[in-house]
Simulated scan of single mutants.
Amino acid sequence: MSALTVRPAVAGDDAFLRAVYASSRAEEVAGFGWPDEQARAFLAMQYEAQRRHFRSAWPRAVDGIVAAAGEPVGRLYVDRGAAAVTVLDIALLPTARGTGIGTALLRGLQAEAAALDVPVALQVRPGHRAVRLYDRLGFRSTTSGASEERIAMRWRPPGHAEWAAAVGVPGVLAGVPALPAECSPALRLGPFEQFSVALRVPADAAFAQGTHRFEHPALGALDLFVVPSARTGDDVTLTATFARAVAP
């Protein structure tokens, strides 16, 4: 996959953003059976309504232009609040769908949210093709923020219970197979729980102490600070230590 960048949208991007929005709803609107002119007018009206709503409800959110290999391919509109990273809109041109770009963008947001110990929240239309992607990345439906037209979904940084359940299920650490092999008991320290996880990687993998991206089918994407702690002829054990806020 080509290198991805996301930059803040500027006034000159308006036509592109309108095209991305129209393409994201083209299949839905085609089902209405309207003439092309009526469909275009409806999509333009809907785009303006969405823009006004986003700017009013999330004034600090950033509307971003997603580019692959320097070419604009989509939109990522995100509000980075104190309590959550909220995805207001993620949409790609048809030619960019199914290429891994959406997955990469969401995994990046998961890692960003995990570092802040806040969830990633989003909404999606029932039956939309993106629901399968969100499920695969660990997002789960929630009643908070849901409506008749939208499913509210949320991904939370994994705590002790999630890591314990992930033991034995392989993931990937900086491109290298990595197996969560052990999760220590959680130690409760006031409003936090502290625990450690042992990850096993192949013996020939060169990992120094530091931060590396970990991707896991159940946990999502996380930037883990790991410390090499043991070595055998078959594998190297890396230890990551966590302190997570817990409900009182």
Rank of each mutant, 00 (worst) to 15 (best):
residue 7 R to W: 05
residue 123 Q to M: 11
residue 199 L to I: 06
residue 148 E to H: 10
residue 8 P to T: 02
residue 67 A to N: 07
residue 40 R to G: 10
residue 170 P to Y: 08
residue 149 E to W: 03
residue 32 F to H: 14
residue 28 E to W: 12
residue 76 L to D: 00
residue 130 A to E: 03
residue 134 Y to M: 05
residue 188 R to I: 15
residue 175 G to H: 07
residue 1 M to Y: 11
residue 91 A to H: 02
residue 99 T to Y: 03
residue 48 E to T: 12
residue 14 D to Y: 05
residue 41 A to T: 09
residue 85 V to A: 08
residue 170 P to G: 11
residue 174 A to D: 14
residue 80 R to T: 11
residue 155 W to F: 05
residue 212 H to D: 01
residue 110 Q to M: 13
residue 121 A to R: 12
residue 241 T to I: 06
residue 167 V to Q: 06
residue 81 G to H: 10
residue 76 L to E: 00
residue 157 P to S: 08
residue 246 V to A: 13
residue 111 A to T: 05
residue 192 F to A: 06
residue 72 P to K: 03
residue 176 V to S: 02
residue 177 P to Q: 09
residue 229 S to C: 14
residue 72 P to E: 04
residue 42 F to V: 07
residue 152 A to T: 02
residue 200 R to F: 02
residue 13 D to L: 08
residue 188 R to N: 09
residue 156 R to Y: 01
residue 207 F to S: 04
residue 82 A to K: 14
residue 62 V to G: 02
residue 214 F to T: 02
residue 179 L to N: 07
residue 186 A to D: 07
residue 220 G to K: 00
residue 125 R to W: 05
residue 93 L to Y: 03
residue 222 L to F: 03
residue 86 T to L: 10
residue 202 P to D: 09
residue 84 A to N: 11
residue 197 V to Q: 04
residue 229 S to L: 03
residue 193 E to Q: 13
residue 106 L to N: 00
residue 226 V to L: 10
residue 193 E to V: 12
